[in-house]
Design a binder for these strands. Structure first.
Lengths: 402, 402, 402
DNA sequence: GGCGTTCTAGAATATTCGCTT
DNA sequence: CAAGCGAATATTCTAGAACGC
């Protein structure tokens, strides 16, 4: 669709793209796509099969996470996050893949439209053919677009400059969701569609809240406050709900996310402990049990924050939260990115704790959890920008895992 | 616009642009830029990349898989100050650099246009190709032009006109912003775009005026004053605005930004060019309470403006939060990220006070008594930002660190 | 950005632009498009020229509307509605055209992207290359999408799948705006971008509203109520805002646009005259004084719907306004120009007299100007939207001027 | 009711023009 | 006249809603 009419365009995008593809050895491009339809269809079939057959867990938590309880083979019925995860994990789909860290997805829109969205009838994966709808789904499930501005490293850029590929690159889209990671299908259960709050609260509510207006990036909305409550109430749901999607709704007042985001956990793992990453206050949604006790006061408030009353409290909470988060997060380069969302409400430690986490562990000592780290450590930020070689840059890049 | 069509670009703008520069082969990409630079540059590159790509972090889930607390990531498009800071810090860009003190930026307009503004498509950094627009952005974010030129007399200028070098020199422009310093990426968070006040005033106002529309220029005063009110009203805005941008909008009662800016230590410093490694130990920004108290009134109002009830609180909170964040963040490069959110709670004036800070050593003792900071830790921030000596901000911070 | 540095572009914008016209043979131009760039560019040039050169009034009002005084060559500066109107009227752009009635625009998205959005540098018309942004603009200016598609059944779809053309057709998009009609450039002045309400209401307001949340289709939001209020208060502003943009802000209470849209004349064209284009109720902006008295009550309410107080009134008013403008403006081409300002305060009746109508003859008798037209005339709107047949819609349509 | 699709609105940043000083 | 700001428009991402299944 997008470029549908290939004919029109002199160079058909497609051709080009295609062309490139073949040539493009690289991962992302799909050569296959390019080919003629037949080929394409063949490919599609395979892919489809793969998906439907439950190739589901490619690698999944190899270690920890076992396969999932739910078997979800069927496609259509599969919830959106699941379908998405499958195609990302699948190596048959060349228009969408994990970023280097396996924490964000990368989509080559044009190719994605051809390879995934335009599938017909029986092989259809998503119900729409439009990227617009797909994006809406992503947002509903808590994904946020990363804007990697300067497009990739200059060096790379140069190299690619001459050709179309460049343009292709240009169009890559990055989306992130804390519960959507490579090899971690178990996290998918937490992804929940954001609920419609609708009239949620009546006047009073509105009064308190301040209205949705502010939400947006900076501040969170009050909207879901309903959800919040729920979250607390229900243990798991809380997580999933709040976490995944949820929060989307429940954005925190203002401070936010963004800030916190920055601070987030870089990869704590690395350096660590020190590196503080902030966690978005808001994000902390919930608390976990453990933490709970300690933080109780906090939490309580926070919740309220959501809803009506809470303004203050919220903040309060938030703040607090952040701190705790710090430690955890600190290392991440990722911090940069803003996170608007924000989401995961869980306190870091918690998370660590949490089950879901799959494979990894967060070794971080994390001193006081919510206690602010001693600053010294954190250099990264400073470093990057500045040059400090040390930490930061590193952390990001590093993937480190092996 | 965004990525414009590469085809067009065929012709490389770059070459042309580059031309001027000579070595840089590729225009925008700088790959050339990339060249091999020294270590620093390499590092920078990474950083740069990181920024742009966000490399997001991550990784590994294989191992880790935890869900992310997430945070992080998104980067919205890097905000203007961030992008600017990156190019100034980068040694790849030869058209813009720090002044000797690292407290102001120097732009060779002609080269800047070619090297930065004319970049195309995927490599575009700023969205405009015009210097005028860039300047507007600078102003919106609180930069003021310094008249350092040794402006040569017009006549002379003409004479020399032919000589590019000369004329070029002639065109150096110096812009200063208290929160924009070499090695101090953490200060960037304070830079906030000036908000449009517009409806600023509440109902009554709206009723009467009809809104800003009529007020017009002359009314300027009125405007602001509205704004002021608004500022007060809306907690958050008040902060952010005031802080970052300084009030442009919300000008503070008496303190003028400008003043503050001017007051800043532009030249003072020299000594330190010190590099960077600055990383401020603690970015603690600062204070909150103290300031708060002063500002309290403000907040109250503001809130109302914003949303009904919660405003204040929120703001409050926010502020607080930021603070906390600061610290945390401090190390992070991530901190940089824009937080739109906004953080720095300090009123502009304050800032003035300690403006410069960063890389530079701030010998300042952390003196402010009331400031709790333990400076040690946080030093940088505190000192810098620190501003208000007064109060309490501390409390918040505190908690943490020790 | 607008026209950036010509130097960069190989081809000088100017030259090119001039060149052209003749060649565009194909309708959509695509051919050219497809072809190599050269051809394409030639075509584009022409088109561009046409636009820029003020081919503005194609047919319009030749008689009525004299040519314009101003020449409006420059494009960029032209406001969005103006630019859009020009390309729709122009026969050089084949990707966008009027529907049979001249009351809605039809866009072939794929072609539009290539023909219009992808124009580069100096020939750029809109600042974006994305359809998404364009749609946002359409919405900001009050356009609503009509669902006229005869979306073909899936089965059929499959069958036709191979044929690109088909699919292309399948993608036609219809957008309607009461002030955007074939041959009626004078109506463009009424189109005003929807203002950001933001702080709109002060505390009280906020309390009342409950937040914008609910607004949406069905109900209007309360948000703007400030605006509304303002509108009422300020004569002029009221006009412009409400009128132009209209309703966008001030949506009507229960009638949903959507409904109207759906109801719209989908294919009506065929039969025709009748084809009704719906006018959104709200759109009627105006009413002036005269009307005022009668409608007062109304107004009160409406406001509320929108925003607290003003909804109705506003709408009402708008209508009126428009009317007045009509006459005056009608002749002037200049009127077209974007006046952002907006102004014409003339009382409706005047306008009525000639409202929409431009080229098309609207035989309709202008009965009472501000009086709600006798439906007969207006049928389309009334019927379509359904809504209340009575008054409002009518008036608008009928222009009737002579 | 949940989920998906689609259209529209909210909100923040960005760009540009013109006035004012 | 240059610097800076007000204001309007533009761009982009995310959220709200309604509708259908």
């Amino acid at each position: 669709m997008a470029h549908a009419p290939s004919e029109i365009q002199g160079v058909s995008p497609k051709d080009e793209s295609t062309g490139s593809e073949s040539s493009i050895t690289s991962p992302w491009c799909d050569n296959s796509i390019t080919g003629d339809l037949d080929l394409r269809s063949q490919i599609e079939e395979k892919a489809f099969q793969a998906l439907s057959e439950g190739s589901l867990m490619k690698e999944p938590c190899h270690t920890l996470c076992a396969s999932e309880p739910d078997g979800d083979n069927d496609f259509p019925p599969l919830p959106f996050p699941r379908k998405l995860w499958e195609i990302v994990e699948s190596d048959r789909f060349k228009s969408i893949w994990w970023d280097e860290n396996g924490t964000s997805i990368v989509i080559n829109e044009e190719r994605f439209k051809k390879e995934v969205l335009e599938r017909k009838a029986p092989f259809r994966i998503f119900e729409t053919e439009s990227m617009k709808s797909l994006v809406r789904q992503l947002n509903l499930y808590g994904f946020t677009k990363l804007r990697r501005n300067f497009q990739r490293p200059a060096s790379l850029a140069n190299i690619l400059a001459e050709d179309n590929e460049v343009s292709a690159w240009n169009k890559l889209q990055f989306y992130h969701n804390p519960n959507f990671k490579r090899g971690c299908p178990h996290l998918l259960v937490r992804m929940k569609r954001r609920v419609r709050v609708k009239n949620a609260s009546p006047v009073s509510a509105s009064l308190l809240q301040g209205c949705s207006k502010k939400r947006s990036r900076t501040g969170g909305d009050v909207d879901n406050h309903n959800s919040d409550v729920a979250a607390e109430t229900r243990g798991e749901d809380a997580f999933s709900a709040s976490t995944n999607l949820n929060v989307p709704l429940i954005r925190w007042p203002s401070m936010s996310q963004r800030i916190s985001n920055t601070t987030t956990p870089t990869r704590s793992g690395l350096s660590s402990p020190s590196s503080p990453s902030v966690r978005p206050p808001g994000q902390i949604v919930m608390a976990q049990h453990a933490i709970f006790s300690q933080l109780t006061t906090f939490h309580m408030h926070s919740q309220s924050s959501y809803s009506p009353a809470s303004g203050h409290i919220v903040n309060f909470i938030t703040t607090t939260t952040s701190i705790s988060q710090y430690r955890l997060i600190s290392n991440f380069p990722s911090g940069y990115f803003g996170l608007r969302v924000e989401p995961s409400p869980l306190p870091t430690r918690y998370q660590n704790i949490s089950p879901t986490e799959c494979p990894v562990s967060n070794p971080q000592p994390a001193a006081h959890p919510w206690f602010p780290m001693p600053m010294a450590t954190d250099t990264s930020a400073a470093s990057l920008s500045r040059p400090n070689p040390q930490s930061s840059s590193v952390s990001e890049h590093h993937p480190n895992y092996h």
